[in-house]
Amino acid sequence: MTRIHLACVAAALVLAGLSGCSSEAGNSNSPAIELLNVSYDPTRELWKAINYAFTAKHEKEAGQALNIRVTHAGSSSQARSVIEGLEADVVTLAMWTDTDAVARAGLIDAGWESELPNNALPYSSTIVFVVRKGNPKQIQDWPDLLKQGVEIITPNPKTSGNGKLSFLAAWGAALDRGGSEADALAYVTELFKHVPVLDSGARAATVTFAQKKIGDVHLTWENEARLEVQEAQGELEIVYPSASILAEPLVAVVDANVKRHGTADIAREYLEFLYTEEAQEIIARNYYRPSKEAILAKHKEDFPEIRLFRISAVAKDWADAHARYFAEGAVFDKISEGSRGEQ
């Protein structure tokens, strides 16, 4: 028995030692350049395809192996991780406010939006509806959401980019119909009374709607909606409302990190690649709206034309939208307090 114990302890120590060594070896001896892209929840399929294309291109042109890793989670929690020290070379988050939080932590240099073409926006997206097969509740546009007995699934605006955008889309659509601020407030207040559960992230809300089969309509990213409908194999349908918000998932190089990694050039090249025809094509095929007009026109049938209003329709900019609607004690907090009070 004594021997076995000795062996156990020795094995544990050796393993501990080995693991230390192996992690160091992985960092220094590996010939491939490593890039870490910290992204938001529903972009898995997109980045998989983009990375494949970019890695192949880079290896052919520069003759250098490249290994790009991508992490996915709720946009705000990803920003938080980068702020706490996650070694991201680039961030490709859902909301301007999240990228801005990383910048304000001193990790991204000021003026990052102007570093890349099209205000650092290689693709855009919007919020659309997903309904059950045959659209049994006849939901065609925003006002239909308030029909008696309609249950709406959307994630929590406090924690999720999808949630914030759903809120802003609903608000902006009310204004778009010619309503006043007070009408918009009344509409959105009523809308959140139809929400039975507020999940914390986009994918969690998708699971609630598509797999747990809760609710009649799911307000979600256009690309997420397309995937969700594909996965459901005929059980779900997409409905495009007449107007919705233009979502701007900006991209940025994390300057403080790439300086230390020595990856500034390759990181920049990676993000610039997003604006090439090849990448824009991949973006369109993954149901994000490409920023290049020509490619967008080519995939016209995939992206039905709806009125997309910018954030300026509902607030001065993304920061102002956050302060007005989602900050502590702001509109959304008042709405949820109000509805709790009535129940």
Binding site: S19, G20, S23, I83, E84, G85, L86, E87, A105, R260
Partner: peptide, 22 residues
């Protein structure tokens, strides 16, 4: 050990990875 934590800046300076690593 996070970058904004007590030991974070020191660890970063010495290139020691604790959080988000093994």
């Amino acid at each position: 050990f996070g970058l904004r934590g007590y030991f974070g800046p020191w660890l970063r300076e010495h290139d020691i990875h604790v959080i988000f690593a093994l």
